[in-house]
Design a protein around this nucleic acid. Sequence first.
DNA 1: TGTATCTGTATCATTTATGATTACAGTATC
DNA 2: GATACTGTAATCATAAATGATACAGATACA
Lengths: 139, 139
Amino acid sequence: MNSEFTIAVHSLVFLAYLPEHMASSDVIAKNVSTNPARIRKVMSCLRKGGFVKTKEGIGGGYILNGDPQEITLAQIYRTVACGTIKPHWCTGDPEQNCMISSNLQSVMDDIFNEADLYFEQYLNRITLSFVLERIKQNK
Amino acid sequence: MNSEFTIAVHSLVFLAYLPEHMASSDVIAKNVSTNPARIRKVMSCLRKGGFVKTKEGIGGGYILNGDPQEITLAQIYRTVACGTIKPHWCTGDPEQNCMISSNLQSVMDDIFNEADLYFEQYLNRITLSFVLERIKQNK
DNA sequence: TGTATCTGTATCATTTATGATTACAGTATC
DNA sequence: GATACTGTAATCATAAATGATACAGATACA
């Protein structure tokens, strides 16, 4: 699983939590405990997905674009980390005569792709607001 | 996701495919395209889970222990790769005052743990026989 | 009983993936 | 025009995954 998904969720939940729904990559990076360039990379992706708006220049940063009660983790997953359940390693060898060796990988691909859809269905029930509430409960 | 899960599935499907339901780590390794030591490590784990029996010495190897129609990928997943959906990277910093930074990780942990259960439910429908059939169809 | 062949497991080397750092152009604001 | 942001790429450092090797222990068989 892609850790950028976690960073994306963290950044958006953080923006939802802030009164102004806005922060710079520097501030977000400190909260997430990583560097600003990494945050900007993820946020740039989220901007293309319509989850935030960008404001350059002095006093700029990222502004949450949408209702935290409606943005689901599934949407975020699809945007920044779709298909990352599947391991990179490939099994077997397409050149071998044995059908197990030559064909199993594509069957596993299908299985992982379908698993991805189930995973998204699960994430679809979780909104930014829900995550925020859970955090407040844990407090 | 752990690639050992893929190796475990491959090895067991391969055993199910063979008339004698038996092969050495050398033969399995060639089919999977990896080295025998890696296969033995995974198989050792599967043996503890009761999926195979081991025969040492000349002409020895691994023997499938169970009905391919009843062994599901969920059982295999639980045995060799449980919890590997979660990324290793940790977000935030427990020492910070901000509750988002200090508490989000545990909420994400919960989310990933529950996702793992859903993933298992999905895998529970897939048997070794099912995978074998799909391979034959792709042939 | 000695030899060959296999598993079980640990260790080390190598490759690959991941994340941090740095740099700089582009853009808005004051 | 100076300042403070984003966007993006390049590079470096570190961590994780995988491959390779080695050897003790177990079994079969001549």
